[in-house]
C-alpha cells in the first residue's frame, strides 16, 4: 500500500548480518535492519549499545568487518562516504556538529557539497528557509553563536541541502528544551511526509515512538527487539527500560 511518503514495502536501506569491530571490540553483532522507502524507523538503545556505530557504518566512516550494507538495492559497504552522500544519504550528526566558525549559510552550502550549484541549490535553500524561517534570519551569523535549538534546525537544514532520500539522525532531541524537542519532531514528520526516509537514533523513546513507523532495540550490539512503533510502545520491557526512564530524567 502506498501512502503520501511513498511507502511501498521495498527497502531503501538494509543491514545484512553486519559485524563491526573497533580493534578487538566487537560492536555490532550480526545486525539486521530493514528501512523501507518512506518510513521513519527509530533505533533505541542505551549507552554503548552500538547506535552511533550504526550511524557511522551507514555513512561509511566505519566499515563492517563482515555482512553487507545495501542501499537502494545495491551493496555500498565499499563505497566512500562522499559517494554515499552523492547517492542521497545525509546525516544529522550527534550534538549537531555544525562548523562553528562558519556562517549558517556556509554550513548549508557544505550540506550541498556533493550537489551542483545553480537553480537546484537555490530551490533547496528556499525550501530550508521556508521550513525554518529562523535559519533564514540567522544566515549570516556564525553557527557557533546560535542556541541549541537553532543549531539543530541548521543541522537538519544542512542535511536537506544534500537532496537526501535517506536522512540518518543521531539523537536529534539531545540537549534541547522540551518545546524545541516537540518542534524538531514535528519537522521530522513533515520532512518524512514530503518523501524523505528517516532513520533515527534516539534516547527520547517516548517521542521517537510517537512519530516512528517501526523501531529496533539495540543492546550491546545485538538487536533484541523490533516491530511496529505501536507494538513497542505497549511492550512491558520497553516501558520499563526506556519510557519510564525518560519520565524520570527528561532531557
Amino acid at each position: 500500500m502506498l501512502d503520501k511518503s511513498g511507502r511501498d514495502g521495498s527497502a531503501l536501506l538494509e543491514f545484512r548480518s553486519v559485524n563491526t569491530y573497533y580493534g578487538d571490540l566487537h560492536v555490532l553483532k550480526n545486525v539486521d535492519y530493514f528501512i523501507g522507502k518512506g518510513e521513519i524507523v527509530c533505533l533505541l538503545g542505551g549507552n554503548a549499545s552500538g547506535k552511533s556505530t550504526t550511524m557511522k557504518t551507514i555513512m561509511g566512516v566505519v566499515r563492517p568487518h563482515s555482512g553487507e550494507v545495501v542501499y537502494d538495492g545495491q551493496p555500498i559497504s565499499k563505497l566512500a562516504t562522499n559517494e554515499r552522500v552523492k547517492r542521497g544519504i545525509a546525516p544529522v550528526l550527534e550534538a549537531r556538529r555544525l562548523f562553528p566558525r562558519m556562517t549558517v549559510y556556509e554550513n548549508l552550502e557544505l550540506g550541498a557539497y556533493t550537489q551542483p550549484r545553480g537553480a537546484q541549490f537555490d530551490e533547496d535553500l528556499e525550501r530550508v528557509y521556508e521550513l525554518f524561517p529562523r535559519v533564514k534570519e540567522r544566515r549570516t551569523q556564525l553557527a557557533g553563536t546560535l542556541s541549541g535549538g537553532e543549531q539543530q534546525m541548521v543541522a537538519i537544514g544542512r542535511a536537506l541541502m544534500a537532496r537526501p532520500r535517506l536522512i540518518c539522525m543521531d539523537e536529534p532531541s539531545m540537549g534541547l528544551s522540551p518545546l524545541f524537542v516537540e518542534q524538531v519532531f514535528d519537522i521530522i514528520q513533515t520532512i518524512n511526509r514530503q518523501g524523505t526516509t528517516i532513520f533515527m537514533v534516539e534516547q527520547n523513546a517516548n517521542m521517537a515512538l510517537s512519530i516512528a513507523h517501526r523501531a529496533y532495540v539495540l543492546q550491546t550490539g545485538v538487536v533484541v527487539l523490533s516491530g511496529s512503533a505501536a507494538e513497542l510502545r505497549e511492550n512491558e520491557d520497553i516501558k520499563q527500560a526506556y519510557l519510564g526512564e525518560m519520565q524520570v530524567a527528561p532531557t
Binding site: 562516504t81 550528526l93 556556509e106 552550502e109 557544505l110 544534500a162
Partner: peptide, 23 residues
Amino acid sequence: TKLGKAMRATAQDPEAARMMGVE
C-alpha cells in the same frame, strides 16, 4: 571557493566535513 570552504570545514571538524561529502 568551494574547496576553500571545505578546507575550513575540515579544519573545524574533519569527521563532520567528511560526512557532508567532503573528500
